[in-house]
């Protein structure tokens, strides 16, 4: 199918991009376009103008900044997967990114783009939420840091304001003793996750000190499985894990769609959380 007409600009600087976006509320950022172009082709979106930020140097690159890894918004999934800095500082992100879409899409799709798209079925929002990433946005008014917990507002809606561009994301490094895993459950390799679970777990002396769990496709935004995290805290590795993970779907409102009903999604969240936590914690 064929998109409806729109204008296109490729600003030479981030400031210019912010201006373009501030001037037209129906303008939209295009990064890799891997989420946006199918929507345009199906005529599910009608932006007046696309502001292409893919080549802005301010949005490029992966940087080791001591206590965190800074990933420029326009870093492609493929670059994230292959980055030594990400592998060392945010290995959960590298693992999950390798499960996003397929190689050709990963060559174009960007880290920032998939977060700004705010699709709760996307894999990376839940991962960034679990890793307590901080999203950095720039506008004519300056720079703003948005914790992931405040970034995802609703289905396909982030807290980015008109005229703001996502510049990059700070992913705090997990220190020693942390293990991690991402469990993605889907019907075919190409299909979106029915449910995904991102888990990061800090162990010491055979028990779990801290757990951070982000859930994919369990609501209109990615969500933290807070009740399960609390139940896991201080728990010895063993039979109790499964019991604690029974809390994984607490306070979630998973969607009903073609591929699953809410009760099945809740069930999956429990099973997959147990699997993710078990793997993350290195438990048998």
């Amino acid at each position: 199918m064929i998109p409806a007409s729109f204008d296109y600009v490729r600003p030479g600087s981030l400031a210019e991009a912010c201006q373009e976006l501030a001037a037209d509320e129906d303008a939209k950022v295009i990064a890799g376009g891997q989420s946006l172009l199918p929507l345009l082709r199906l005529r599910l979106a009608y932006p007046t103008k696309l502001v292409d930020v893919a080549r802005l140097p301010e949005l490029a690159g992966v940087h080791d900044r001591g206590d965190h890894v800074f990933i420029g918004a326009m870093t492609t999934h493929d670059e994230v997967m292959r980055s030594g800095v990400v592998a060392a500082g945010a290995p959960l992100l590298a693992l999950a990114t390798a499960m996003v879409a397929d190689p050709a899409v990963r060559h174009r799709g960007t880290f920032g783009g998939s977060l700004a798209h705010a699709d709760p079925a996307g894999d990376l929002p839940a991962v960034v939420l679990a890793l307590e990433g901080v999203l950095v946005a720039r506008s004519a008014q300056g720079e703003r840091e948005i914790p992931a917990a405040d970034f995802f507002v609703d289905y396909l809606e982030s807290s980015l304001r008109q005229g703001e561009v996502l510049v990059g994301v700070k992913i705090p490094k997990l220190g020693d003793g942390w293990g991690f895993h991402y469990e993605k459950f889907h019907r075919t390799a190409q299909a979106w996750a029915i449910v995904g679970v991102a888990a990061a777990v800090r162990r010491s002396n055979g028990s779990i000190q801290e757990a951070r769990i982000g859930l994919t496709n369990m609501g209109t935004t990615p969500v933290r499985a807070r009740a399960a995290e609390t139940a896991l805290e201080g728990l010895e590795l063993g039979d109790g894990l499964r019991q604690a993970c029974e809390e994984a779907a607490a306070d979630t409102s998973p969607p009903a769609d073609l591929h699953a009903q809410p009760d099945y999604r809740r069930h999956l969240a429990r099973v997959l959380t147990h699997r993710a936590v078990r793997t993350a914690a290195g438990a048998p």
């Binding site: 296109y8 490729r10 295009i30 376009g33 891997q34 172009l37 199918p38 082709r41 696309l50 292409d52 893919a54 493929d78 190689p103 050709a104 899409v105 060559h107 174009r108």
Partner: peptide, 14 residues
């Protein structure tokens, strides 16, 4: 690098 040419605008390929 491989891309799906249905998901790239011609202008992006400039």
């Amino acid at each position: 690098k491989t891309v799906k040419s249905c998901s790239v605008l011609a202008v992006q390929a400039d």
